[in-house]
Design a protein around this nucleic acid. Structure first.
Length: 693
RNA sequence: GCCCAGGUAGCUCAGUGGUAGAGCACCCCCUUGGUAAGGGGGAGGUCGUGAGUUCAAGUCUCAUCCUGGGCUCCA
C-alpha cells in the first residue's frame, strides 16, 4: 500500500508560545535577531525559534540557539496568514456591524473562519462583499500586529469593557499565560502568533456563511460563522480556486447526472436511483466483491428487511439507535392505535400495548443482528469457525435532512458487509487476511494512497481489560506485520471493541474513509451466542464487522470522482461503442455488436444519422473507453476502426476477433488478469512484437 | 434539526411588478457522411408547492418541500 502519508495530529505545539517569556519587553525580539543575522526581508512573516513559531516582534526567551526566518511561502506561514486574516475580518465585521460579538476565529486546513453573534441577525452574501472591501481597507492601513502579555484580571477588565461575553467565558477556561493581540484599534484575546502587520495579507477571499453553535453544542446559542481562505500570494489563491473548480468538475453529483448514472426524486429524499448505466457499474462492483469472497472463504446470505422490534431491542439498536431507524407500521395496527388514542380503549395497559404493537416492526439499519440470528439457529462447533458471513442487504437509516449529501450520505444503501464469527485466537489471522483483501481491492481500483488508523479502547467501554488487551494487540500485530503505514487513534475505538479504519486519498488528494474492521464482544453476548469447543464446553465467539468498500453507494461516488467519470474498461457501463459512418453500415454494425457481445463485451451502438464527428463527440462525453468506427472499409474487412478514449489513439482497422482479444484482457480487474490475458494487453512493450510466453 | 444560498422546459441557465425566453437534448424533414457539434421545422413550462399583498406576481411577503454549503450527529 501507498506512501508513508500520515495525519500526524498537526504540530499544534509549534504554535504554542512558551510560558513565562514575556515578563519584560526589553529583551531582544525574533525580528531583531534575524535583522542582526541579516536574514530579515519583507518575505519574512515570522521566526522559527528552536522549532517554535514566533512573531517577529515577540521577545525571545533566554538562551535560544536557533532563530530562523519563516518565509511567507513556507507551509507553516499559512497558519499565521490565515489566523491574521481572521482577526482582520473580525475587525471589519465589528466596524461594519457595531455590537456584533466575537467568539472563536481560528485558521483551518483550508482557510479560516470567525464566529459572530449578531443578536439573532445573520450575514448575507452582500455583507460578505462589504466585509471583504472593509478588510482591504484595513490591510491597506498596514497596522502592525502587537502582542501584549497581561494578567487574567487585566484581560477580564478589558473584555468586560469591550462587552465580549464569549471571550470572557473563554478567558476563564484558559490556563497559563494570557495574551492579547492588537492591530490598530482592534484587540482580541489570542495566543498568536501573527504576521508582522496587516499589510502582509495579500490574498484572501470570504467564501460562505453558516450557522454554528457556541462551543459546538446544540443547546448553546447559534452563532454566524463566516468562512474565508487566504494564501501567501494571489497566485496561490488562484491555484486554490482552480483546484476547487477541478473538484467541482469531478463532483459525483454532477457526473452522476451528466453520465446518466444516478438520479434522485423528491419523493424519495436522499435515496439514489441507479439508472441503467449506473446500475451496471453498481452490479460490477458487487460482482467483483463476490468473486473475491469465493476465493477467500466467505459465504453469502440473504436476510430479511423488516424485523420484529424485539431483534433491535436485543441488539441494543432500540432505543440506542432509534432516531436513525425507520419503523414500519401496518394500517391495521395504526387503526387500533388511533382508536386507543381517541379514547375508545380505557385500560391503560391495553393502550400502551396497542401503541407498542403499532410500531412492532423495524427496518434494518445494519446486518449484524440478523447474522447473529443465523449463527444462533443451530448448535455451532469450533470446527465451523471462523465463519465468514457476507451480506449485500439493503439498509435504511434515517439521516437528518441537513446531513444527507449526494451518494456519500444517503438514507438507503448496501455495504459489502460481512461478519466473521471466530475465536479470540483466530482474530489476528482474520485481520491479516482482511488486510490482504483490502490491499487487493484498493489496488484494483487504483487507490494507491492508503493508510490505516487503529482506534483503541475509549473511556466508555464494555468488556474486560484483558479482552481489550488481546484484541488490540491482535489488530496492531497484524498491521505491524504487514508493514503498512498506520497511526493510532487512542480512545477512538467503538465502545464494544477496537477497530481499524482504511483511509484513501483520491486522484485530487481528498481523503476518504472507506473500509473498516472492528472487533465486537457485545453482540455475541447480547444474543447469547456460543459454540462448542474442543473441550466440549460452550464458548462465546468473537464477532468481526468488516467492509472493504464500505457503503457501495459511497464507494461508487468516490470512485466516480477518482476516475473523473472515466471508468476503467472492467467497470465501464459500455466498453465499446460502435459508430457508423453512415446508416448504410447499420446492418453490419448490429452484426458486429452481436459478435462482440457474444464474446462477453458490453457494447453500445450509435445508428443515428448524425455525422461521425458528432457520434464521436457524444461517445467521448459519455467517457466510453473504446469506439469502433464502421464504414465501407470496415464492412469489407469484417472489422472495425478502433479508437481509444485516452489521448487521440487511433488504433487502426482491426478484425473483430482481434478487437475481442484486445479488450478482454483489459476487461478484468488487475488482480484477476492472468498471464494469458495480459498477453493481449492493448499496450505491448514498444519495439518489436510481443514477447510471447 | 439549526444557519446561509438556491429551485424557471429533460439538462445548463437568462428573465428587478405589465404578453414566459435561449442553447443543448427530444420529434419530423432534408442530408448518407471518415475521427469532438451538417441544415431546416416542430413540440415541450399552472416559473417546486400553498397562502397572502397588488388592477396586475416567475419577480414582493409568509409558510412548506427539495437541493447545495456549513454546524451538529455518526454502534
Amino acid at each position: 500500500m501507498g506512501s508513508a502519508h500520515r495525519h500526524a495530529a498537526h504540530d499544534q505545539s509549534l504554535f504554542r508560545v512558551r510560558a513565562a517569556v514575556f515578563v519584560t519587553s526589553a529583551r531582544e525580539t525574533a525580528g531583531q535577531r534575524l535583522e542582526a543575522l541579516g536574514k530579515l526581508s519583507p518575505r519574512v512573516v515570522g521566526a522559527k525559534v528552536d522549532g517554535v513559531i514566533y512573531d517577529l516582534h515577540t521577545p525571545l526567551p533566554e538562551g535560544v540557539e536557533k532563530v530562523s526566518p519563516l518565509d511567507k511561502s513556507a507551509p507553516a506561514a499559512l497558519k499565521l496568514i490565515r489566523h491574521s486574516s481572521a482577526h482582520v475580518m473580525a475587525d471589519a465585521v465589528q466596524r461594519l456591524f457595531p455590537g456584533t460579538k466575537v467568539a472563536f476565529g481560528p485558521a483551518t486546513d483550508a482557510g479560516f473562519f470567525y464566529d459572530y453573534d449578531r443578536g439573532g441577525k445573520t450575514f448575507s452574501d452582500d455583507d460578505l462583499r462589504a466585509i471583504e472591501a472593509k478588510m482591504s481597507e484595513i490591510i491597506a492601513e498596514n497596522r502592525p500586529f502587537v502582542r501584549e502579555s497581561v494578567t487574567r484580571d487585566e484581560a477580564r477588565e478589558l473584555l468586560t469593557k469591550l462587552e465580549e461575553p464569549y471571550k470572557l467565558e473563554h478567558l476563564e477556561r484558559l490556563e497559563g499565560d494570557i495574551s492579547l493581540y492588537r492591530h490598530g484599534d482592534w484587540v482580541d484575546l489570542c495566543e498568536g502568533p501573527h504576521v508582522p502587520s496587516t499589510g502582509f495579507l495579500e490574498a484572501f477571499q470570504l467564501t460562505h456563511v453558516s450557522g454554528c453553535y457556541w462551543r459546538g453544542d446544540e443547546t448553546n446559542p447559534m452563532l454566524q460563522r463566516i468562512y474565508g481562505t487566504a494564501f501567501a500570494t494571489a497566485k496561490d489563491l488562484r491555484g486554490h480556486l482552480k483546484r476547487l473548480e477541478e473538484a467541482k468538475k469531478r463532483d459525483h453529483r454532477k457526473l452522476g447526472k451528466e453520465l446518466d448514472l444516478v438520479g434522485f426524486h423528491p419523493w424519495a429524499p436522499a435515496s439514489p436511483f441507479f439508472l441503467p448505466r449506473g446500475a451496471t457499474v453498481y452490479r460490477l462492483l458487487v460482482d467483483y466483491i463476490r468473486r473475491l469472497y469465493s476465493r477467500t472463504g466467505y459465504e453469502e446470505v440473504v436476510t430479511p428487511q423488516i424485523f420484529d422490534t424485539q431483534l433491535f431491542e436485543t441488539s441494543g439498536h432500540l432505543p440506542g439507535y432509534a432516531e436513525a431507524m425507520y419503523l414500519a407500521a401496518t394500517s391495521e395496527n395504526l387503526e387500533k392505535a388511533s382508536a386507543a388514542l381517541a379514547g375508545e380503549v380505557h385500560d391503560e395497559q391495553a393502550i400502551e400495548a396497542t401503541l407498542r404493537e403499532s410500531i412492532r416492526f423495524g427496518i434494518k439499519p445494519m446486518n449484524c443482528p440478523s447474522h447473529c440470528l443465523i449463527f444462533g439457529m443451530q448448535r455451532r462447533s469450533y470446527r465451523d469457525l471462523p465463519w465468514r458471513m457476507a451480506d449485500f442487504g439493503r439498509l435504511h437509516r434515517f439521516e437528518r435532512s441537513g446531513v444527507v449529501q449526494g451518494l456519500t450520505r444517503v438514507r438507503t444503501f448496501a455495504q459489502d458487509d460481512a461478519h466473521i464469527f471466530c475465536t479470540l485466537e483466530q482474530v489476528q489471522g482474520e485481520i491479516t487476511a482482511f488486510l490482504d483483501l483490502v490491499d487487493a481491492v484498493y489496488r484494483d481500483f487504483a487507490f494507491d494512497d492508503v493508510h490505516l488508523v487503529v482506534a483503541t479502547r475509549p473511556d466508555k467501554r464494555i468488556g474486560d481489560d484483558a479482552i481489550w488487551d488481546t484484541s488490540e494487540a491482535a489488530l496492531l500485530d497484524a498491521v505491524v506485520a504487514k508493514g503498512i503505514p498506520y497511526e493510532i487513534a487512542v480512545g477512538e475505538g467503538a465502545f464494544y471493541g477496537p477497530k481499524i479504519e482504511f483511509h484513501i486519498k483520491d486522484a485530487i488528494g481528498r481523503p476518504w474513509q472507506m473500509g473498516t474492521i472492528q472487533a465486537d464482544f457485545t453482540l455475541p453476548e447480547r444474543f447469547d451466542l456460543s459454540y462448542v469447543g474442543e473441550d466440549n464446553k460452550a464458548h462465546r465467539p468473537v464477532m468481526l464487522h468488516r467492509a472493504a468498500l464500505g457503503s457501495v453507494e459511497r464507494f461508487f461516488a468516490v470512485l466516480l470522482e477518482h476516475v473523473g467519470g472515466a471508468f476503467p474498461l472492467w467497470l465501464a457501463p459500455e466498453q465499446i461503442k460502435l459508430l457508423t459512418v453512415s446508416q448504410k453500415f447499420n446492418d453490419y454494425a448490429l452484426e458486429a455488436k452481436a459478435q462482440l457481445e457474444a464474446a462477453g463485451l458490453r457494447v453500445d451502438v450509435d445508428l443515428t444519422d448524425a455525422k461521425l464527428g458528432a457520434k464521436i463527440r457524444q461517445a467521448r462525453l459519455m467517457r466510453v473507453p473504446y469506439m469502433g468506427v464502421i464504414g465501407e472499409k470496415e464492412v469489407e474487412a469484417r472489422g472495425l476502426a478502433l479508437r481509444k478514449r485516452e489521448g487521440q489513439k487511433d488504433l487502426g482497422l482491426l478484425p473483430l476477433p482481434e478487437v475481442v482479444g484486445m479488450l478482454l484482457g483489459e476487461a478484468r480487474p488487475p488482480s484477476e488478469r492472468t498471464a494469458a490475458s495480459s498477453e493481449n494487453s492493448p499496450e505491448p512493450p514498444s519495439g518489436g512484437p510481443d514477447p510471447k510466453v
